[in-house]
Structures are given as structure tokens and as C-alpha cells.
Deep mutational scan, measured.
Amino acid sequence: DRIFMTRTEALEFLLKAHQTAVDKIGHPSHKQTPADHAAIEALDRLLLDVRARRVDQFQINASAAQIIVTD
């Protein structure tokens, strides 16, 4: 599946995904793992790359739809 978004929409989408990941590892019942921190770092890099126009398409994980940034 493909989803087309403007750059602004894609950045909002990534910010929400980032916040969800941060909230998940901050929850008291969740045991933090290196994979959790790696996922947040990957989202940080992706946010910067989309914002800087170095990336025009991405996929958060293998089961997610491919996001295509349109400007």
C-alpha cells in the first residue's frame, strides 16, 4: 500500500509516531530495551531527513504502508 502526503503531513505523522514511541518507553509498566531507543533514534533521523528534503518516501516498519511525500 502507498499513502501520498504533503511534506507537512508527513512531518506531523512522524512527530506523532515519535511521541508514541517516547510515551511507550516512558510508561512505568514497559521495560526499556535497546531496540526501543534505536527506534526513536531512527525516527529522529527520518524526521530530519524528511524536513531537509533528503527523503521523499519512507516506511516506518515492514508491515506499514509506504509513505510518499509530495510537494
Rank of each mutant, 00 (worst) to 15 (best):
A39I: 14
Q32M: 15
I25V: 11
V69M: 06
Q32S: 14
F4W: 07
A38Q: 12
K16P: 00
L47D: 01
D1H: 02
H27Y: 09
S29P: 08
T6I: 02
D1K: 01
K24W: 07
L15M: 14
T33V: 08
I40S: 02
E9V: 04
A65G: 06
L46I: 05
L48P: 01
T8S: 13
R54Q: 05
H37K: 11
T70D: 12
S63Q: 13
D23W: 02
T6W: 02
I68E: 03
K31R: 11
R51F: 07
L47W: 07
N61G: 12
I60T: 05
A52R: 08
K31A: 08
A38N: 07
T6E: 03
S63I: 11
R7M: 12
D49I: 03
V55S: 03
I68S: 04
I68L: 05
K31I: 13
R54C: 04
D44P: 01
L47T: 04
K24F: 08
V22T: 11
K24T: 10
K31S: 13
E41G: 06
V50I: 05
I67D: 00
L48K: 15
I68F: 10
A52G: 07
Q66T: 11
I67A: 01
H18I: 15
D23G: 11
S63D: 12
Q66C: 07
S29D: 14
L15F: 09
A62S: 11
A17H: 06
A52E: 15
H27W: 12
A10K: 00
A17I: 10
Q32G: 13
Q57M: 13
A39Y: 15
L11K: 01
V69E: 02
A65W: 05
I60M: 08
Q66Y: 13
Q59G: 03
F58A: 01
I25A: 09
A10G: 02
R7Q: 06
A42L: 15
L15S: 13
F13T: 04
L11H: 02
A42D: 08
G26P: 04
A42Q: 12
L14T: 00
F4I: 09
D44Q: 15
A62D: 15
L48D: 15
D36E: 10
A10L: 02
D56A: 07
T70W: 07
K16Q: 11
T70E: 10
P34W: 09
D1F: 01
T33Q: 10
T6N: 06
T70S: 11
V22L: 14
A17K: 04
F13L: 13
Q59F: 09
A42M: 15
Q57G: 07
T33R: 07
V22R: 10
D56S: 14
H18K: 15
A62F: 06
I60E: 02
L15K: 15
V50K: 00
S63L: 12
I25E: 05
A65N: 07
H30I: 08
D1L: 00
G26H: 14
F58G: 00
V50D: 00
P34H: 09
K16V: 09
D36Y: 06
D44K: 15
A21I: 14
A17W: 08
A38G: 06
T33M: 11
A64I: 08
Q59S: 07
R45E: 05
E41F: 03
I60C: 06
D71A: 07
I3G: 01
V50E: 00
H27L: 12
P28W: 01
A10T: 02
E41K: 13
G26V: 10
M5C: 03
F13E: 04
M5A: 01
I67K: 01
V55H: 01
R2M: 13
V50H: 01
H30K: 07
V22H: 07
L15Y: 12
R45N: 08
I40Y: 03
A52Q: 12
I3S: 03
A38W: 09
I68W: 07
T70I: 15
D23T: 10
S29I: 07
T8C: 07
S29G: 13
D23A: 14
L43W: 03
L14H: 00
R53I: 03
T8Q: 14
L11E: 07
I25W: 05
Q19W: 05
R2D: 06
P34G: 07
T33G: 09
P28E: 10
N61H: 14
K31M: 12
L15E: 15
D56Y: 11
K24Q: 10
S29C: 07
T33C: 06
